[in-house]
């Protein structure tokens, strides 16, 4: 499964040998589905799944890292893919335990899943959505991270990226323009809709974070759209 000759594989190999015991035992699908709730804010899975803040996770097994078409990955993810990292139970297990240990520059704002059992269950659940085994059960992507009751007119606004560039100064004091994230999540290359939905959720006090509620609270609809347009295409 490790076909790449890139020296990174050596490192990954080391990490893997430590953690490979657990996944081999298989996992509980129902429990895995519950664990997947942690992922749902950014990743879709199952029928009709699309890329959102993160790529969709259908047919994940056997996919090269950074291998989903039309998703904008971080540089470090692309490097890992080019270096031969392919998603299988063992590599996923390592990645999910501490995403940044494996791909230090990933934009995935997620600390990792510490319990080996939770990871094994999640991986078993994810496996159901890959071609093999072929009998993929009906998907049930109900509670999406993008569930919202936002006025479609707000979502339809076309933001002015130049204005967004100026306004972004207020964001980049904390959120790194290069997409790095530790303690404060990355906000670059999000689909515009997700960005707009999240900012309005802060503005309407549905998402709880005092700094973000304060910043979003005084941004108008046009301004949020402008920021979304700007960050959606900001390259590292």
């Amino acid at each position: 499964m490790w076909r790449g000759l890139f020296p990174l594989t050596l490192l990954f190999g080391l990490i893997l040998s430590l953690s490979s015991v657990v996944w081999a035992q298989g996992g509980d699908l129902d429990a895995g589905k519950k664990v997947f709730k942690k992922c749902q804010g950014c990743h879709q899975l199952g029928e009709g799944a699309e890329h959102r803040i993160g790529p969709h996770l259908n047919a994940l097994f056997g996919r090269k890292a950074a291998g989903a078409a039309e998703f904008k990955y971080s540089k470090s993810f692309k490097r890992a893919g080019a270096g031969g990292l392919v998603w299988h139970a063992d590599t996923l297990d390592t990645f999910l335990e501490n995403p940044r240990a494996m791909t230090s520059g990933t934009r995935m704002s997620f600390a990792g899943i510490k319990k080996a059992e939770d990871r094994a269950n999640l991986i078993a659940y994810l496996r159901e959505f890959s071609d093999n085994p072929a009998d993929i059960p009906e998907a049930d992507p109900t509670a999406r991270g993008t569930d919202h009751d936002l006025d479609p007119a707000i979502l339809a606004l076309q933001g002015d990226p130049e204005y967004g560039a100026y306004l972004s100064g207020e964001c980049t004091t904390c959120h790194q323009a290069a997409g790095g994230d530790a303690g404060i999540p990355s906000i670059v290359l999000w689909p515009e809709d997700d960005f707009v939905v999240a900012m309005h959720a802060y503005k309407n006090q549905k998402r709880i974070h005092p700094v973000m509620q304060m910043i979003a609270g005084r941004l108008g609809d046009e301004e949020i759209a402008a920021l979304a347009a700007y960050f959606a295409v900001l390259e590292e």
Binding site: T172, T173, C174, Q176, A177, G183, I184, V211, Q213, M214
Partner: peptide, 30 residues
Amino acid sequence: GFISQTGETSDVRKATYMESEGWYSGITND
């Protein structure tokens, strides 16, 4: 404006500290 509250849980306080680390990287890069 806003301010942290007295008596917050240790989880909230820890997250606030982690945030300050993120902010430090953010502002020095900026």
